[in-house]
């Protein structure tokens, strides 16, 4: 089964598969696949970038949703706690957040382990560190988007849920959330595009994403302009594909509205 799946993915690989652009247009040059060119390395970088962004999205959305819930609660202390979170992580540069998470988590784990009597060097995974840092930044922005969407939903909707005898959780799930998604979708679309660009920062802590892989290729082959141009082009294509896909989702979310 897994062999069959991987064979399918290899066939559909847009870079180095039988119908891949690098296979067709790379020739035996700089971006050819295999040992002589950088095509397969860059294809790997694209996969890392996409998987990092996709892995960050649900985590960031979930934290952002919880923060938004906290920020609109009637409890003053909870609002304060949420406010501190968004103020800090919207004010810090993404790069600095990444370093703070990367080195800070390493130190934290090391000191906890030292407390239990283990004195070894701990190195945390760059992918995980990048994911955590990006999720934190994404959540603090998405909480603002979701908060304003929450405010756009009239109180009557909650009251209707109460009147129907639904529990709070059911009201949220069945009445508020569907409307929330529809209202927040344009803002979240923007945030996804920003997230896609922000993944480039993880190249600094050594994760093999697009920028890192093209950078290595540029240094080795001395064709810096070509490879960094390729990197920009790849991000551009990713942005185009995602705005095309998000257009579909937006139309799907608006299917209940009367088309005029």
């Amino acid at each position: 089964m897994s062999g069959w799946l991987s064979a399918l993915f290899n066939t559909l690989d847009p870079f180095c598969g039988p119908a891949g652009i690098f296979t067709w247009f790379g020739g035996t040059g700089l971006v050819s696949c295999g040992d002589s060119g950088w095509g397969d390395e860059i294809a790997f970088g694209v996969k890392v970038t996409i998987s990092l962004a996709l892995a960050t999205l649900p985590v960031g959305l979930l934290i952002g949703f919880l923060i938004a819930l906290a920020a609109q609660s009637q409890e003053k202390l909870l609002r304060l706690a949420a406010g501190i979170y968004t103020t800090i992580f919207r004010g810090l540069p993404e790069l600095l957040t990444l370093f703070i998470v990367y080195y800070g988590a390493q130190m934290l784990i090391q000191s906890v382990l030292a407390f239990f009597g283990y004195d070894g060097r701990v190195e945390i995974n760059a992918f995980v560190a990048g994911m955590v840092a990006l999720a934190v930044v994404f959540s603090s922005y998405s909480s603002e988007v979701l908060l304003s969407a929450f405010r756009a939903i009239p109180r009557g909707q909650y009251e209707a849920g109460d009147a129907l005898g639904l529990r709070r959780g059911k009201t949220m799930l069945l009445i508020v959330l569907p409307q929330l998604i529809r209202i927040a979708l344009p803002g979240l679309t923007n945030l996804w595009l920003i997230l896609l660009k922000d993944t480039s920062y993880v190249s600094v802590i050594g994760l093999a994403d697009i920028v890192r892989q093209t950078g290595v290729a540029a240094r080795v082959s001395k064709e810096a302009f070509f490879f960094y141009f390729l990197a920009c082009l790849l991000y551009l294509i990713l942005a185009m594909i995602s705005s095309y896909g998000l257009g579909f989702i937006e139309r799907w979310a608006k299917r209940s509205e009367v088309s005029r």
Binding site: Y201, V211, A218, K222, F225, F227, F229, Y235
Partner: peptide
Amino acid sequence: VYVFRSTPLLAQLFLIYYGLGSF
């Protein structure tokens, strides 16, 4: 506008500093 808004600043910076630097 589209190109500069949908590519990361890091990649643009590398393109200008290292990329143009190679000419």
